[in-house]
Design a protein around this nucleic acid. Structure first.
Length: 273
DNA sequence: CGAACGACCTGCAGGC
DNA sequence: TGCCTGCAGGTCGTTC
């Protein structure tokens, strides 16, 4: 569900309200997520100060200091969202974790499908979930030369290559589809047979589209909301994602829909080669 | 090492 | 109205 822009939007929405406050209570109403929520999370977090809130890939990292120094990592999976509530607001179905801070904001983790993650890590940098991740797409480490070099031995379709978190993080099904359309590259083409100059274009388009989507508050397909419960507005900018069997906005020919790696993939066979 | 695929889970839309 | 199927923003673990 949430890709990088939605996670970044969430971060920006909640950070100003929570930074430098102290955890006063934690309620885990449903511990069965992708992995069990860390045992005893309430005792670990209580009385600790939130010193830094940042993002790595699609993980939100809450760095705490106090009796226990470490990081709470939250991944939103396919259907997760975080929002700020008042402690006495009524719990909605699928509000699985609630963390109350000393300024009376309560952070609620909501996730119908429960593919998300809430874990306490003492040493996140070395944790297997985080230490094998590729570069951030908006960093200087990610560019066309990097993609070109990394792709030389890869036979997978370029769309799957772009969605591989060991190649680059944060690019999911929506933005991979859109960036390939903007770049004029067929999602089906083998990663290793794409020329360097085309990867230069692709890297630029990935950066542009992610930055634009962040400015728009992300893409809301049905249930994504930011920390304040508001949707994102990038959906109106999508050109191929979710538009199978509709005319291409550029050439008017019918868009095609295929499956790649089990994911719906929409593209224009005329504009994308 | 890389590739393919099943697994996890709920909600919703569409067909009959 | 109800039942069934398939599909959805992710990604890990297993198998070959």
């Amino acid at each position: 569900m949430p890709e990088l822009p939605e996670v970044e939007t969430t971060l920006r929405g909640i950070e100003p309200h929570l930074l430098n406050t102290k955890v006063v209570a934690v309620e885990v109403r449903q511990a069965s997520l992708r992995w069990p929520v860390t045992d005893n999370l309430a005792n670990i977090l209580r009385d600790n100060y939130l010193k830094l809130l940042h993002r790595r890939a699609k993980y939100l990292l809450f760095d705490f200091i106090g009796d226990r120094t470490g990081t709470l990592i939250i991944h939103l999976g396919m259907s997760g969202s975080l929002r700020l509530a008042q402690p006495d607001d009524i719990f909605r179905k699928h509000d699985h974790v609630a963390i109350t801070f000393s300024n009376d904001w309560q952070l609620r983790f909501h996730d119908p499908r429960r593919f998300g993650t809430v874990q306490w890590l003492e040493d996140p940098e070395r944790h297997p979930l985080l230490c094998h991740l590729g570069p951030e797409p908006l960093s200087e480490a990610f560019d066309g030369d990097y993609l070109f070099k990394k792709s030389r031995s890869r036979k997978v379709p370029v769309k799957q290559f772009l969605m591989d978190n060991q190649v680059v993080v944060g690019v999911g099904n929506i933005y991979a589809s859109e960036a390939l359309f903007r770049s004029g590259i067929s999602p089906l083409r083998q990663a290793r047979e794409i020329a360097r100059r085309r990867y230069l274009r692709l890297a630029d388009e990935v950066k542009d589209i992610l930055a634009e989507a962040i400015e728009q508050g992300g893409t809301t397909l049905r249930d994504f909301v930011n920390g304040q419960g508001n949707p994102g507005y990038f959906k109106q900018s999508l050109q191929v994602y979710g538009k199978g069997a509709q005319p291409c906005r550029s050439c008017q020919r019918m868009l095609r829909e295929v499956r790649l790696g089990g994911r719906a993939t929409v593209y224009c066979s005329n504009c994308q080669r």
